[in-house]
Nucleic acid binder design. Structure first.
Lengths: 240, 240
DNA sequence: CGCAAAACATGACATTTGTCATATTTATTG
DNA sequence: CAATAAATATGACAAATGTCATGTTTTGCG
């Protein structure tokens, strides 16, 4: 999966210092930084493209630099489910990349324009072997991710559609929201269908629930500008 | 959470060589083994006890030595969900243990008699820092776990109750099953309620679905002796 | 072995959610 | 700025699942 209308480049060229923004890279010493800078490439993707697809061979370790990325999985009958929305700083394929001959268990799609750092499997592996602190950083990251998905699985297993939607909104408000005169504006474009795919309901159900939330003045707006108007009440709905 | 009717001991005493069975320990050199052996303790738990509870401070890294362990999370209204069944060799709290002052996000319950190796947070951390291969082993393990839960989340989000049940049975057959004249016997005691908690349905629904599977000769038996009679057909049901 | 508890079973009914059909509104793009 | 596609909306109905009540069978244990 090469990015089609996008430029690849040495990371150092297009971005002055990738080591500032990313926790995993921030901890590296001078020597490791020089090595990594040689190996790290940056790629750009736009809507409708794929970063990789379910089943593709996993040859690179990735880091989100800018924009957000959707990780989706699909079932035999064509339905889709969004497992995770990755934000800047998020790592992906930490794991697949260290297994020989493993394939991507899901598809990565950009949500809007994104740029991604990539590191070859080999360089990634050597980084981890030579730098225990980097490995521990990855362990921490994966541990957090694991905790997150387990929480998500719990919600999917136990909560009703409206609670799941409320949880999603609370979560996104915390992770991507910015203050706004009207409330908290979400930092990702999110259609009702996107939301539906994230909480495992039909698009119609997501629309109906959002309509109710709107009537109750918990949220406002649609995909391009989605605003949380009453976070506390959404939060209590989520955990009721 | 101390084990009540159980004995703690230096690992070396009650089990001749913990390094044989566990991938993470198998890769260690002589020196690390000696250090770890000093630090590793073994604890035993029985049904009805807790290894730890949701919210307890996470001070140890754990490895399942014998038996199986249920990781459960519960929601505000008392409903429970089983996030994972750990088997011998499984690691847990790889992650919480490296964060300062973090708490367990779920409860760990023995399913029958189990024995558990424990390593203090400090010793675990030092092991990882000194031994990059161990850290990589943990990364691999966490990566696999992450992949697993994401698959589980997908199933919870997209599949109907009977498909989810079929997936569960296929999964357990692969992971714990042993050949048997009647089919594949599961290696864990599993009531309908246990299954219900694993796939996010009510106990009655689990019972009804199992009754149907039984009529269709896909499975046989109940909790104490659950046998998979037609794995291929269950598998195709799971992914239909 | 017999008793109590746990597990399994089943029906009736309520609730939740999905599906399909059809508008209406809002974005996007040439 | 049209025109075209995407997103939002809503109703009617069907399907899936939960809930509650009650009964039977199996298991564990003194």
């Amino acid at each position: 999966m090469q990015p089609s209308r996008s430029s690849n480049s040495r990371a150092g060229l297009s971005s002055p210092d990738p080591f500032k923004q990313i926790p995993l890279l921030k901890i590296l010493g001078e020597r490791d930084r020089r090595v990594i800078l040689q190996e790290l490439t940056e790629a750009h993707y736009g809507r409708g493209e794929y970063i990789f697809r379910e089943g593709d061979p996993a040859d690179y370790f990735h880091i989100v630099k800018e924009g957000s990325v959707k990780c989706v999985k699909s079932s035999a009958d064509g339905k889709e489910c969004t497992v995770k929305v990755l934000m800047p700083g998020d790592l992906f394929c930490c794991e697949a990349a260290v297994f020989d001959g493993d394939c991507h268990p899901g598809t990565a799609k950009p949500m809007g324009d994104v740029s991604i750092f990539r590191l070859s499997k080999k360089a990634y592996f050597e980084l981890l072997r030579r730098n225990p602190d980097a490995a521990i950083e990855v362990i921490k990251y994966l541990g957090n991710r694991l905790k997150e998905v387990q929480e998500q699985a719990k919600i999917l297993a136990l909560d009703r559609a409206d609670h799941r939607m409320a949880s999603l909104l609370v979560n996104l408000a915390q992770r991507t929201g910015t203050k706004d005169p009207q409330g908290i504006k979400l930092g990702v474009r999110l259609t009702r269908q996107d939301m539906a795919d994230m909480v495992g309901v039909s698009t119609e159900t997501a629309i109906r629930i959002m309509a109710r939330f709107k009537r109750d003045r918990l949220v406002a707006g649609t995909a391009n500008r989605l605003v949380i108007k009453d976070l506390p009440r959404l939060r209590s709905l989520a955990s009721a």
